[in-house]
Design a protein around this nucleic acid. Structure first.
Lengths: 237, 237
DNA sequence: CGTCGTCTGTGCGCTAGAGCACATATATGA
DNA sequence: TCATATATGTGCTCTAGCGCACAGACGACG
């Protein structure tokens, strides 16, 4: 993780962007641009955080890893969210890991400053709580989706959620890693991705996935994607 | 749903019980004892709530129902929780249903009063937010469990979570309903429950399940149960 | 330009659980 | 006490996905 100095990036976080000027200006001196690299672990299960992170074009996966090493994703955080909700929810830590799934930039803020601003109870607090509610919907839908839908449907949901959060049609991501996220075998991802490639929805080579036709993905995905998306739109405008 | 008058039940909600006297006394005039009957729908998906509910010995399931009618549970709310987090999280509604899974009493409070008290930012706010974080862990664990564990393991987890929240060794619950909660076939529950009965962990007849040996259930359950339990203990003392 | 490590493709056999079809038991109430 | 609805038991077939094994295929780097 490297620290940027100056240069007010175009790429911004939508929660911060939604703040009224007054609140934003108060926070500004405490905001710090950093960059996340692929595979970087932002926090480990049970590990307290010194900072809260507002992703720009970076995407971070919330993963739970079982005792036997198998893992599954519970949620995805991008530029419409924030990493480290435990800091304002009061628990300080979470029993999961956060792993950078797509490299990019983020903005961070000291935990202490965050808490001070949170208790003021302004728009900032409101946005953070609303985002948390949207995240709950995302996690719930993941639970339901894991139970009821096929790997191919889930792959589509996952690609769409990622595509929404990164400002590009290419995702840098091996099938092996996707399998870890979805909690399935790598071979399962290979065949599902193969089918999506056959119908021209995506194309991929060695860790580079191109989204060719979003509508085809949406057609193949289960309703879970749309539910999550609608809820984010509703809660965060 | 019927409204009680007077009679300060022994059976109480642990969040309310954890309030400092001063805050509790301020809320007291606004608390109303009610009773939930089995199968009652506390709220529908997308339906705004007039009240927030603090279950006593009642247990309420948070369910998501798909377009095709199949459903799955995302979480379980009992005397250590509260129903209607959307009211203070700011979203007003949730895209899921809440169904009474075990009849019993609860305490309710008008949404308006809740919001007024929440913005004061005292212990009440802290408790609600910490509970919400614990609920997030429960939902996350459900997601992971749905992906990685067998029906039998999940049945054990579910029985243990329910047993923790009801003050009795008997649960009134048909296998059909459990199947809906877990998002599996009824027959799957029948065989899993049959095995648990064979080893003497439980016994059941037509919708009445007796927990005979918790330790056997814990031994058969996956780690998910303990993770959720530990997190509730940690966050809510 | 060859070697090696990292991705991806494919083909097994195996199992958990779905879907379906009934058989049986137990309550409830006319 | 009998009829009926509700709950549970059991036995199929079918399929998605697992685990494993190995065969390309590409790319980075000497």
């Amino acid at each position: 993780m490297s620290v940027f100095v100056g240069s007010h990036e175009q790429i911004e976080n939508r929660l911060l962007a939604a703040l009224p000027v007054e609140e934003y200006e108060r926070l500004l001196p405490h905001l710090e641009h950093i960059s996340f690299s692929l595979g970087e672990v932002v926090y480990e299960s049970g590990e307290p955080l010194d900072y809260i992170y507002f992703p720009g074009n970076a995407i971070v996966s919330l993963l739970y890893t079982m005792e036997n090493g198998s893992s599954a994703e519970m949620g995805l955080v991008g530029n419409d969210g924030v990493l480290g909700i435990a800091l304002f929810m009061g628990g300080d830590t979470m029993p999961n890991r956060a792993v950078v799934q797509s490299a990019g930039i983020a903005i961070r803020m000291k935990a202490k400053i965050l808490r001070e601003e949170f208790v003021r109870g302004g728009k900032f607090q409101q946005l953070l709580l609303r985002y948390t509610q949207a995240l709950i919907t995302q996690i719930s839908q993941t639970a339901v989706c894991n139970r009821l839908h096929s790997v191919e449907q889930q792959l589509c949901r996952w690609l769409l959620l990622s595509h929404d959060r990164v400002r590009a049609d290419e995702l840098v991501m091996t099938q092996e890693l996707i399998a870890d996220m979805l909690g399935v075998r790598r071979e399962g991802v290979t065949v599902a991705a193969g089918r999506l490639q056959d119908v021209g929805a995506i194309s991929y080579v060695r860790g580079h996935i191109k989204i060719l036709d979003r509508r085809k993905l949406e057609a193949t995905a289960c309703e879970c994607y749309q539910v999550v998306r609608d809820e984010f739109d509703r809660l965060l405008r």
